[in-house]
Amino acid sequence: MLLQSKDVLGLQYMPSEEISYIIESAATMKELLMQSAKKMPHLQGKSIVSLFYENSTRTRMSFELAGKYLGATVSNLGVSTSSVQKGETLLDTGKTLEAMGTDIVIIRHPLAGAPKFLGDNFSGSVLNAGDGMHEHPTQGLLDMFTMKEKFGELKGLNVTIIGDIMHSRVARSNIWGLTKLGANVTICGMDTMMPCAIERTGVTVSNNLIESVKDADVVMALRIQKERQKGGLLPSNREYHTFFGINDDVIDKCKKGVMIMHPGPVNRGVELSSAVMDADFSVIDTQVTNGVAVRMALLYILTRSKNNEA
């Protein structure tokens, strides 16, 4: 199967068959990843550049390892956020990378739409590793893969996403992907962090944590960024944890077998209590492993799509 677009910009417009296919391929890649010798030839001769305009450890490392395990040449171009405004334009950076023979650019950018803009002006593939508050498609895919691994089926699954929905590209990608594959998505948080008209995406909106988690199969807590408090969207992390944090008392109200997820990095004691984070129903480490598998699958599918075009 080939993807219909040369770029992976988000899950909003990705057909559900493609999403399912990537998740299935990720399962195969995970088997390879679990081998002792992690060097496969799938991407031999391919050149991948990661272009990060925002700090990130895990996503960047995850992409880099995914590319290297499959034998690609992976290079990093770190760009400080300040040079978004000054310095070389993204248009020119794209042209430079193209002139250097880059097949795939993995981009993280603080501005929504930057990957789309790059993709429109770059003949290779562009993979969105997070753009502003817009989308983070590989995070959505790895979360869905992790859910599917445990529950076998996404259709009918009750997923509750908690926290700063407004600023979260992770939430948006999960909402698009999960609703497309038939899961029931509830989002929960305070109204200062709820984006306008979000219910039109097909989710249920709640301000009540216990109500929103009691029937959930999956509870996903989002990271609260430190600057939100300064921005006046919430008074304190303490109050956040009191009303929206996941601790043992909340787990007691959940169904048996509930799975706790978090895209990381976790603020211990804010989104999740330390006890919950370290409990066996938290799958945060599995999410990290699955992230590498999903990115291996996606890179492979993308380069193959490209080869078949030629």
Binding site: G113, H134, C196, A197, R200
Partner: peptide, 13 residues
């Protein structure tokens, strides 16, 4: 504009 579109596009409204 702040509305469904800004929410979906992830741009400040």
């Amino acid at each position: 504009n702040e509305g469904y579109q800004s929410t979906v596009l992830g741009m400040p409204g």
